[in-house]
């Protein structure tokens, strides 16, 4: 199972890299969002997928699953949600100001 998830994370990273390298600003933002999904999957796999019972004292099992990665992912999801939404706002504002979402044209704007 771990192997499959790792491969999935790899596929997501390659998709995200492709998107981030494109010229369209919205695609770049989607790419960064997919990047973060890949990272979350990786964190989960690195902590070990379900190995024992849930980490509660009532469950009297021999082994427990590590709960920490899920806490980390939860935090990371919230952060990436905030960052992505702010990024979208900035992109929209830039579109309003410059009438383009093409990074080549944005790049050509002179620094006054």
């Amino acid at each position: 199972m771990e192997t499959i998830i790792i491969i999935l994370a790899g596929v997501l990273v390659s998709v995200a890299t492709y998107l981030v390298l494109s010229k369209n600003l919205i695609r770049v933002i989607l790419g960064t969002s997919i990047f973060s999904h890949a990272a979350h999957l990786l964190i989960m796999t690195m902590g070990g997928l379900k190995e024992g019972s849930s980490p509660l004292l009532g469950e009297e099992a021999a082994t427990y699953t590590d709960a920490l990665p899920q806490a980390l992912i939860l935090t990371a999801i919230v952060i990436s949600f905030g960052v992505t939404s702010f990024f979208l706002v900035i992109a929209y504002r830039a579109y309003q100001e410059t009438n383009t979402d093409n990074l080549d044209i944005l790049r050509g704007i002179k620094d006054e």
Partner: peptide
């Protein structure tokens, strides 16, 4: 929200979002 600020803001954000992703990895 001047044009120059938005342009560099986008560059700055993209760089930092990608590097934060690498931090997570």
């Amino acid at each position: 929200g001047s044009k120059m600020q938005l342009k560099h803001g986008i560059i700055y954000m993209t760089i930092n979002v990608v590097s934060s992703w690498m931090f997570l990895i």
